[in-house]
Design a protein around this nucleic acid. Structure first.
Length: 229
DNA sequence: ATTTAGATCCTCT
DNA sequence: GAGGATCTAAATG
């Protein structure tokens, strides 16, 4: 019996598309500074391939302070801040020096839901939030998006570049494999300005899962095995 | 179900 | 200065 199911570097040292598909069903674990343990099953990911991928922060070989972690060793975190209020969590993959990564877009909460709810609900939300409005978010609203899951798990720039291992407070563990028939492959979200790359099917999510950020009816239809009749 | 607008600030040109 | 790998609530069909 293995003592630990913690994913090691070899799990991530591959091209981003392969790692993305492989991460579906794995478990993202977070230990907060106060010791609280949170976990969620990875149900939605996107691959960002490398310098040729126009949607990637490393498109054209661009190398800046922000995306430096993408060029680092696989199995580390690439966290960035966007839209003035959200963080996004990526797993660096590929070989050292190759800027490839997988964006984790959604989790099915498995552990620590109440702590997630505190973090998600405690924040002053976007425009239109009424003062004093107490709300109890359902589980499917806790981690159903890249910004949401970072908020729920307390992931921010402090974890940028961190190795994915228990000592860092964020890591990945093996989970139940998800069969091919239960995985939908679709174009990525929010990258309209990436030209032809916007249409590449580099997003994977669990079919019928209520915890994904967004479903793609056309992609689901195209990949559904034809039924009788 | 789909669209719209605002929040908000780090990062790069 | 401009523009985000987003989220939320409100308005509209």
């Amino acid at each position: 019996m293995p003592v630990s199911t913690e994913r090691g570097r070899e799990h991530f040292a591959d091209d981003a598309a392969a790692v993305a598909r492989r991460l579906i069903g794995d478990v993202l674990v977070r230990r907060l500074p106060d010791g609280t343990r949170l976990a969620g099953r990875i149900v939605e990911v996107e691959a960002y391939l490398g310098t040729q991928d126009r949607a990637s922060h490393a498109a054209g070989g661009r190398r800046t302070a922000r995306n430096e972690a993408m060029y680092g060793p696989p199995g580390h975190a690439y966290v960035y801040f966007t839209y003035g209020m959200h963080h996004c969590f990526n797993v660096v993959c590929g070989a050292l020096g190759e800027p490839a990564a997988v964006l984790v877009r959604a989790l099915e909460p498995l552990r620590g839901q109440e702590a997630m709810r505190e973090r998600r609900g405690g924040l002053r939300a976007g425009a239109g939030t009424r003062a004093g409005g107490e709300r109890r978010l359902p589980d499917e609203s806790l981690c159903s998006g890249p910004g949401k899951l970072c908020q729920a798990l307390g992931i921010d720039l402090a974890l940028n570049g961190a190795a994915l291992e228990a000592a860092s407070g964020v890591w990945v563990e093996a989970g139940e494999p998800v069969a091919e028939a239960d995985v939908v492959r679709a174009p990525r979200v929010g990258i309209a300005s990436a030209g032809a790359w916007a249409a590449e099917p580099l997003r994977w999510y669990v079919r019928g899962c209520r915890h994904v950020s967004r479903r793609d009816a056309a992609a689901e239809r195209a990949s559904t095995v034809a039924g009788p009749g």
